[in-house]
Design a protein around this nucleic acid. Sequence first.
DNA 1: TCGGATGGTCAACGTGGTTGACCGGTTCGC
DNA 2: GCGAACCGGTCAACCACGTTGACCATCCGA
Lengths: 160, 160
Amino acid sequence: MAADRHDTDPTPQVPLLLAIAYRAMTDHFHARLAELGREPLRPAHGYTFRYLADHPRATTVDLAAHLGVTKQAASKTVAELADWGYLRREPHPTDRRAQVLALTERGHDYLRLADRLWSEVERDLADVVGADRVTALGRDLRAYIRHVYGDQPVPLRPVW
Amino acid sequence: MAADRHDTDPTPQVPLLLAIAYRAMTDHFHARLAELGREPLRPAHGYTFRYLADHPRATTVDLAAHLGVTKQAASKTVAELADWGYLRREPHPTDRRAQVLALTERGHDYLRLADRLWSEVERDLADVVGADRVTALGRDLRAYIRHVYGDQPVPLRPVW
DNA sequence: TCGGATGGTCAACGTGGTTGACCGGTTCGC
DNA sequence: GCGAACCGGTCAACCACGTTGACCATCCGA
């Protein structure tokens, strides 16, 4: 039944819809960011900020695990964000190999701005489909994600 | 780093949930593909197939517009897929500069397989949240996408 | 106390996109 | 008609952002 949607598109399946919607939302987000004259921060940067805000003693290796990339890749990101003044690398209190990552005030600022912009995007979505539907959508996606990953940490790797 | 329990901080917002869910679904999709011993086709390839199936007289430039990439990038994709026997380049009937792209039988096969696998993913989602929720989710996302893009063609560019 | 595991960096490379130059066929204005 | 501009397609150089691999310094447990 309905097995043959394989020509004439007009109804992409749900996974593709997720991708398109997310893409549209990030485009919106970055357009607003550009309007505000911010550096071209990418999603991975935002997720880095959020992680550091929640885990004040995190190291580069911790961050790499969270982002689902190698420590080398995480290290590059960290270096870049440190150059731009969004975070600092401080000596680790007990491990002289390691360094503790800490958001600067500028980093916290950005995080607040990002929260504001994402809320804007959500409000946009709510305007189209209704606030109750946004709530339901969040609930359903969370349920699915929990189903897939259980209690394991969720990798945030690029989507493509 | 024993003490980090609260990985899912306050509550990720909807855009991030979209990204994570889509990522989980494509991971599932590609895992199944690998199980079946297929070449490592990426989402852009699948979208290419779908577009060609729906637009039998498409050229490389058309495809580029649909994928939202440059014609050079589309040309690389086409060359690769032609090498792998998924599509053919045929002379354009009226324009001797252009070439018409056509799926081979192998290409159509892949498309049928992909549809089957994506349906599996959707069924998975339905098992978790209920078929009615999947329907609603599709409807809402379509509404949002329509809100953003109107009647313009939707670019399928990478998500990150 | 010593050997393996761990945090971090450097370097080389791969993938998949970009920009730019170019060729030849097409179409438009006059 | 015909030259100029436009357009389909390719080649080449480059870039962003990840990877693998080698390496050093430090840490820690048998």
